[in-house]
Amino acid sequence: MTQTTIEGANPSGALDAAIEAARIASPVISGPDGRTHVALPERIKLHDITDPYRLPSRVHQNVTVDDRASLSAYANRYKSDRSIIIADFDALTISARLDWHEHNQGEQFPAPGHNAHAVTLALRPSEEFSRWDEMEGKIHPQAEFARFLEENSVDVETPEAATMIEISRDFEATVNQTYKSSVRLDNGDRKLLFENESKVQEGVIIPEKFTLLIPIYNGEEPEVLTCLFRWRAMGGGAVGLGFQWHRVEYQRRAHFTQIATTASEETGLPVYMGRFS
């Protein structure tokens, strides 16, 4: 077989031409610093085609923290004259908006801020509050409620935990007995009367109310919450038990406001109660 060579063919030159064609097909390169270049073959000069009117680079960061101390520490590290705090009770969030708009005392007012850098405290109910809140407002079988009181008696401030354990055990002892009647005592407590098969009656005294000493929000100090005892005669001679919060919603709102106000004091930033869109 005779090998035929095309006169004037240059394989190296063909490869260079292919590389140049690839560069020309996709010549634009964007750098991590925000600048843009176009890459062309060596014989062609490199030109800076960056948009001279582009916006300056800025921080894009939204951090979520679990306690007020972290919120204040982060805000103090990155705050400026334009930073503010917005506290939204409905969402249970307190957010330091670090690159908010220029205020009307600054030379650049009314220049808008980017609002792209923020640290937000997402408040969560404490474990103790969640347990009690799950039971609140419902009537439970007496044995179930008695066990709950005994297991969580450490959260009770008044009456003493030992008294609450005694009440819970008294109720457990009357599970198979028949509820007969109730008597309201002079101090507002109730005495529930039960009767066994031998017609022997015994009573269980339940307080009109009791108080808890637990934190409402995770990471916060405990406070006193008031609970009102509730009971109801059920079918078959049984009694259902439960409790209701007494003005706890006001305490939740007040404590939320206190956290936001404390964050404002720790950072020196103005706080606004509400939400933004």
Rank of each mutant, 00 (worst) to 15 (best):
H37P: 02
E42H: 04
A75E: 05
A73W: 05
D88I: 00
T64A: 12
S95P: 00
N76Q: 14
H47Q: 15
A75N: 04
K79C: 08
I84M: 02
T64G: 02
P32A: 12
D88N: 14
G34Y: 06
S70N: 11
F89Y: 15
L55I: 00
V65Y: 11
L55K: 11
S57E: 11
H101F: 01
A87D: 05
V38L: 06
Q61N: 11
W100K: 02
D99H: 01
G34P: 05
P32Y: 06
G31Q: 14
S70I: 05
D90H: 09
I86L: 07
H37C: 06
V59C: 00
S57C: 10
L55W: 04
A96E: 02
T36W: 07
A75R: 01
D88E: 05
W100P: 00
T36D: 11
L46F: 09
I44C: 15
T93H: 08
S80G: 06
L92Q: 11
T50S: 14
A73C: 03
P56F: 06
A91I: 06
I94F: 07
I44E: 14
D88W: 06
T50A: 09
Y53S: 09
T50W: 13
R58E: 06
S80K: 03
G34I: 07
P41K: 15
V63L: 13
D99M: 03
D90P: 08
K45Q: 10
L46V: 10
A73N: 08
N62V: 02
L40A: 05
S72E: 11
V38K: 14
A39H: 13
N76A: 14
T93L: 08
A73Y: 05
S70V: 03
Y53M: 08
F89G: 00
T64D: 12
P32L: 05
Y53T: 09
V65M: 10
Q61C: 08
K79R: 11
D48P: 04
N76P: 00
R68Q: 15
A87I: 07
D51N: 11
L46N: 11
T50R: 14
G34K: 12
A69N: 13
K79T: 07
I44V: 15
H47Y: 09
A96G: 00
R43E: 12
T50F: 10
D33E: 12
V38P: 01
S30W: 07
T50P: 07
T64Y: 09
I86M: 02
T36V: 15
L46Y: 11
R54T: 04
D67N: 13
R58A: 12
K79W: 07
D99L: 02
V38A: 10
A91V: 01
H101E: 02
Y78R: 07
R97W: 01
Y74A: 10
R54W: 04
R68N: 12
W100D: 07
D81W: 13
R68L: 14
D66A: 12
P52C: 03
D33R: 08
H47E: 15
R82I: 12
H60E: 10
S95N: 03
R77T: 06
S30D: 15
D99V: 05
I84G: 00
L71K: 02
R77C: 10
